[in-house]
């Protein structure tokens, strides 16, 4: 089972942020269409199951 926290698009919210919650992160996706490139960010919980997410890409360990 994959979770959002394991995804390359997951960026944990820093502790000093207004919307900090344990395991909460920003799901950031780069998109491109005929009019150009843009980035979308949506809050997600790191422990959410990501198996059905078509954007899931496993984070590569450093």
């Amino acid at each position: 089972m994959s979770t959002c926290a394991e995804c390359k698009a997951f960026f944990a919210i820093p502790e000093n942020a207004d919307d900090f919650e344990l395991s909460k992160g920003d799901c950031v996706r780069e998109e491109k269409d005929q009019k150009g490139k843009y980035w979308l960010s949506k809050p997600v919980m790191g422990d959410m199951v990501a198996d059905k997410c078509s954007y899931f890409m496993k984070k590569v360990a450093n």
Partner: peptide
């Protein structure tokens, strides 16, 4: 304020990662 700062975070994430 929190919503505006989500934009701040996104801009930084784009700069640092994309």
């Amino acid at each position: 304020i929190a919503w505006a700062r989500r934009h701040a975070r996104l801009a930084r994430i784009i700069a640092e990662n994309f």
